[in-house]
Simulated scan of single mutants.
Amino acid sequence: MGKYYQYYVEGQDEEKIIQVLKTELQLIAPGKVEKFNVVSEKFTELRIMPLKMGTIVVLVFDTDAGNIDTLKENIKFLNKQRTIKKVLCITQVKNLEDELKRSCNIKEIKELTGSKSNSDFKHDMRKEKQFGNKMMKKGFDMEKFWIKTDNHIYKEILNQAAEIKLHK
């Protein structure tokens, strides 16, 4: 590809899913992953200093919380940086669990990890070594993952996940 991707994700759960999708399942463009909540924290020049020229920045965030103004400021700031080739947004409508329920053959999120309860899911997912395998066993479909755009607060932010998905 010859492109550099830098993913900024909300938390450990998104960090885990990005790692699984890019490494174990090889369904998205490879790149570095950093925890940074783009809907509540503001980018600084210091934070983006390590980025290589021509980097494509991918912002992954939930649409169930946060501040659209902070997100817009971050997008505007990143688009002004000469090292950044492009800024892509991935909206998780409403959150990661909803995205996984939409893209797997499950009714409740706990079914994905065999967790005792839905509230145990995140902990169990983070410690699971073969999470991609578990996703595939539950019929994970990348075509259904990260495809929605929020209709409310984030409606003007397009979901650009298609640009990082690898088509096999």
Rank of each mutant, 00 (worst) to 15 (best):
Q160T: 01
L96S: 04
L78H: 12
I18R: 05
I157Q: 00
I90C: 12
E34R: 14
K122D: 00
I68Q: 13
L21R: 11
E128T: 05
K3Q: 05
E156T: 15
E73K: 15
D69S: 15
E128Y: 06
K165T: 01
E156V: 10
F43H: 01
V57T: 09
Q130Y: 09
S119A: 11
T70D: 10
I17D: 00
E45V: 00
A29P: 00
K107Q: 11
F43W: 02
I147C: 02
R102A: 10
R102V: 01
R82Y: 08
K168C: 00
L71N: 10
K72P: 02
V93Y: 13
V60C: 04
G31D: 08
L166H: 09
L25A: 08
K165D: 00
P30H: 11
T113N: 05
E34I: 06
E97S: 13
L96F: 09
T91S: 15
K168N: 09
V57I: 11
K72R: 15
H152N: 10
E97Q: 14
K110A: 04
P30E: 12
F77M: 08
I153G: 00
D69P: 09
E128I: 00
K148E: 03
T23E: 14
K101F: 08
L88F: 07
L25Y: 04
V60N: 02
K22Q: 14
A161C: 05
Y4N: 14
Y8E: 02
Q81G: 05
E24P: 03
K134P: 00
F43M: 01
T70M: 15
L88A: 03
G54Y: 10
Y8N: 00
A162H: 07
S40L: 12
D13M: 05
M53F: 08
G2P: 08
P30N: 13
L21Q: 08
F140C: 08
E45G: 12
Y5C: 02
I17Q: 04
K129C: 00
H167A: 03
L158N: 10
Q92H: 10
L46E: 08
F36T: 09
Y5A: 06
E15Y: 13
L78G: 07
I90A: 09
E14F: 01
L112R: 06
M49K: 14
T83K: 15
A161S: 10
D64N: 15
V58G: 06
M1T: 08
L100H: 09
D150P: 12
N151D: 10
G66P: 12
I164H: 05
G54K: 12
Q12K: 12
I84R: 09
K127H: 06
A162K: 11
H123W: 06
L100Y: 07
M53V: 08
Q160A: 04
V39L: 01
K42S: 10
I157E: 01
N37F: 04
I68V: 14
F43L: 02
A65Y: 08
D64G: 13
N95H: 12
L112Q: 06
T113C: 11
Q92R: 13
V38P: 04
